[in-house]
């Protein structure tokens, strides 16, 4: 019975391959709608950006670009669904930093980061250290001084092992030589609210939520993890300015296909995606405070991302995070 099904499936697959064979060339691509898999539920920050970019991409490609939300399993369900689809460029994944981090933090992710090839970068967002106004220290130096004098006394919000917020907090602790107590939250919203209420002292948040809270005086922002100050929030000093050179990094967002996708198809997709990300329509609708669209080339991003991956890997080894 099983064999019959397998044989039938194989025959069908072979027939499909034959039928599609002439179309698997760049000049003919795409012949049918392209699916962009978003490994998060509809309405989240990633989904929103994916939809805006997908809409512009379909204009560039002259084909529908459909968003398919495949959430769950710590985004592994979406990631694996892309690897199970044929390497024909019709299935693209729109994901953020976790696509690189999961193989490092997860015991059984079912893929390696090398299984994916970059189509195009979307943008990068640094994190910002949001601190309760009553926590001692109005500058990074004062805060670090206090933390050194009272090891483990300050509570730092965390979203769980191996996330960017967690790893950036660890980078800061390492760079400053301090010890903080890690307190887990299930989302950035509750963690920031806990900083505001004083339940915890600090949290590595995204700028889009922390900057408005700081404007109301409910948190103080002591440092940002970008290499240079953020254009839209120039008052926040960088960690590097204060001598914590290694506390740099952030979340990035990009599109990938299976690494074994033919190169000409990848380049067609890249051209469309890069043009979409640079279009006015995307810039006007995607610009969230602190999230900067990638202005360099895709190749530059590829190099940046691979370097980033090595840094995360070193972090995870240093703090001794065992893959779960």
């Amino acid at each position: 019975m099983k064999t019959t099904i397998k044989l039938t499936a194989a025959a069908a697959a072979a027939a499909a391959t034959l039928a599609l064979a002439p179309t698997a060339r760049a000049q003919d691509f795409p012949q049918r709608p392209v699916t962009v898999v978003v490994p998060y539920a509809a309405g989240g920050a990633t989904d929103v950006r994916a939809r805006v970019v997908a809409e512009e991409m379909s204009r560039q490609l002259g084909q529908n670009v459909l968003v398919d939300n495949r959430s769950g399993g710590a985004t592994l369900i979406g990631i694996q669904s892309v690897l199970q689809a044929p390497a024909d460029g019709y299935t693209v994944i729109f994901h953020a930093t976790p696509i690189a981090l999961l193989p490092l933090t997860h015991a059984d992710p079912g893929y390696a980061f090398e299984d994916f090839a970059l189509i195009a970068p979307v943008g990068v967002a640094p994190h910002v250290l949001a601190v309760n106004p009553d926590t001692p220290g109005d500058t990074l130096e004062e805060l670090v001084e206090y933390a050194r004098a009272n090891p483990g006394a300050l509570n730092a919000g965390s979203l769980g092992g191996g996330g960017t917020s967690h790893l950036l907090t660890e980078r800061f602790m390492d760079a400053a030589g301090i010890e903080l107590t890690e307190v887990r939250y299930t989302g950035a919203g509750p963690a920031l609210a806990a900083v505001m209420s004083g339940e915890i002292d600090l949290f590595m948040d995204s700028l889009s939520t922390s900057v408005p809270a700081a404007a109301e005086g409910r948190v103080k922002l002591l440092g940002v993890t970008s290499a240079e100050r953020v254009e839209s929030a120039p008052d926040i000093p960088t960690f590097a300015e204060h001598g914590f050179d290694t506390a740099v990094g952030g979340t990035w967002m990009a599109m990938f296909v299976r690494a074994d996708t033919p190169e000409d198809i990848r380049m067609t997709l890249r051209e469309a995606a890069v043009a979409a990300v640079r279009s006015d329509a995307v810039r006007d609708r995607i610009g969230v405070l602190g999230f900067e669209l990638w202005s360099g080339t895709a190749e530059e991003f590829d190099a940046f991302m691979r370097n980033d991956y090595d840094l995360w890997e070193a972090d995870i080894r240093r703090i001794g995070l065992t893959p779960q």
Binding site: V48, G189, M196, S208, P212, E216
Partner: peptide, 26 residues
Amino acid sequence: LGVPGDAVMALLLGVLMIHNVSPGLG
């Protein structure tokens, strides 16, 4: 506060974020 009480509220919060509206006293 930007703290949703349930999953539907979380979705509505997501819509606010799409539109660059940050919850809060603002």
